[in-house]
Amino acid sequence: MITGKAWQFGDDINTDLILPAPFMYLPKEQQAKHVFEANRPGWVDLVKSGDVIVGGRNFGTGSSRPAPLALNALGIGCLIADSINPLFFRNCVSFGLAALECPGVSAAFDEGDVAEITLSAASVRNLRTGQTLTGVPIPEALLKLMQGGGIFPLLESEGLIGPGIDSAGA
């Protein structure tokens, strides 16, 4: 179960907002400092580890850049949205960012409410109102990948890749 404070972001949040282009190739710790810089400057200083992003429709539309990695590095506990762009959701699985599509969730939360999320049951509860919503179930294999930290730990355990070579970030 994931419990965290909710931050509201609205509809059609694109990847250029989540991770602006000038920073997308930086190491993830540096990416994290620029998340939502254009639409919500200063937010990265307010958000706490474990907090939850609440999106409206089509969250994450846009490029395949490692935006979920930046949200991970920022310590986001979970992303819940009325709908998540399928490419973005795929990257949430691949980078191991907890994410759940849950129609109606943006209307069910005020900013600052606390969300309690059970990914395996695809359920979201608002602890202030007591309302529980049911989201779109995540296929078991994908949930396992998402909760296991994504593709890199898996490939590493199979000896197919080594750890990151962060020379360029030095």
Binding site: Y25, P27, L69, F152, E156, L160, I161, G162, I165, A168
Partner: peptide
């Protein structure tokens, strides 16, 4: 873009 440190790995 694949060869930047954020998501490149040592490929075995």
């Amino acid at each position: 873009g694949n060869f930047f440190p954020a998501y490149w790995r040592d490929i075995k």
